[in-house]
């Protein structure tokens, strides 16, 4: 056994601090290179007319002032928040139901937990393509079932109509992500000691009283985590729209990230795309802050 000599001649506390610093250094370096520098770069670019190639020019706040005039940007903001509001409740309701179902450690319960969680493991791009095929009017399983049950007179173009396109995309995303919310809520459920329920039952509490006075309050932190992750994911949604509808029909499913992508890489307006990204970042920080505040642990 050899302890390295204290060549730097440091005291024990100094050495401890140095060791701590060395341990976090990889993370600090990672965050700096992959988050802080790109973020500063984006801020810098947002003040410029920055084509993907060619001359760049400083334009001050022009990119930001143009945002208000961009009809599609406002439409995309509206769409993204409508989508978030519509997709979050089913994910939570279903996630909670599933978590309650697989909570007890019964025989073979692992199989069900695995089945419910499986879609989470598939990439969003892959699952979106899968749904495109399942929803197809000629070869899709959904139309086959609906036609065989005589529920529809002819094959439906689910992704071709604005109202159904949104609904089937929500359906696919709920299927894809509900397992993750289930796992988070399951952890919360299992953290609640059984004695609490038992004593409540002795006092004559029914299912809903137990739910509202024991389960939900004690799961607050887990719900907050699941909600914040889910809302951030929904606000940043892109893949499912890019793959399943290409923003259509009639440009009705262009999410905000989709519009940022289009401006940056199809119209080559990187500066403008950066400005939109910064605004979106601000919105997300505010939204997350608000959720933290509402769901904070009260003394």
């Amino acid at each position: 056994m050899s302890i390295p000599p204290n060549t730097l001649n440091l005291s024990w506390t100094q050495r401890r601090k140095l060791t701590g610093l060395l341990f976090v250094l990889p993370t600090v370096a990672f965050v700096t290179v992959f988050f802080i520098i790109p973020l500063l770069m984006t801020v810098y670019m947002s003040f410029h007319d920055w084509p993907l190639f060619g001359e760049r020019a400083f334009t001050g706040l022009k990119n930001y002032s143009e945002l208000g005039k961009d009809r599609q940007y406002l439409k995309s903001l509206d769409f993204t928040f409508r989508y978030t509001l519509l997709v979050t409740p089913p994910i939570f309701a279903l996630g909670f139901i599933l978590a309650s179902l697989v909570r007890r450690n019964l025989r073979f319960i692992g199989i069900f937990r695995t089945i419910f969680f499986l879609p989470v493991v598939i990439g969003l791009g892959v699952s979106s393509l899968l749904w495109v095929w399942m929803l197809d009017d000629r070869i899709g399983i959904f139309n086959k079932i609906l036609l065989d049950l005589n529920l529809v007179p002819k094959a439906q173009l689910f992704l071709g109509r604005p109202n159904t396109a949104m609904n089937v995309i929500i359906l696919s995303v709920v299927w894809k992500t509900v397992g993750f919310t289930m796992i988070l809520l399951l952890a919360g459920l299992q953290a609640i000691p059984d004695e609490l329920y038992e004593s409540a039952e002795v006092d004559g509490a029914g299912y809903f009283r137990k739910l509202f006075y024991i389960t939900l309050p004690l799961m607050r932190r887990f719900i907050a985590l699941a909600l914040i992750l889910s809302v951030i994911g929904s606000v940043l949604a892109f893949d499912q729209f890019y793959i399943m509808t290409r923003g259509g029909p009639r440009n009705s499913t262009i999410s905000i990230v989709y519009w940022i992508f289009n401006n940056s890489f199809t119209y080559f307006k990187m500066g403008y795309g950066s400005a939109m990204s910064i605004v979106l970042l601000g919105i997300l920080v505010a939204l997350t802050g608000a959720q933290f505040y509402v769901l904070r642990e009260r003394e």
Partner: peptide
Amino acid sequence: YNDLFNDANGPWLE
């Protein structure tokens, strides 16, 4: 041209 006509989310197709 690309922004006007070819872009899947451009004004031409819409």
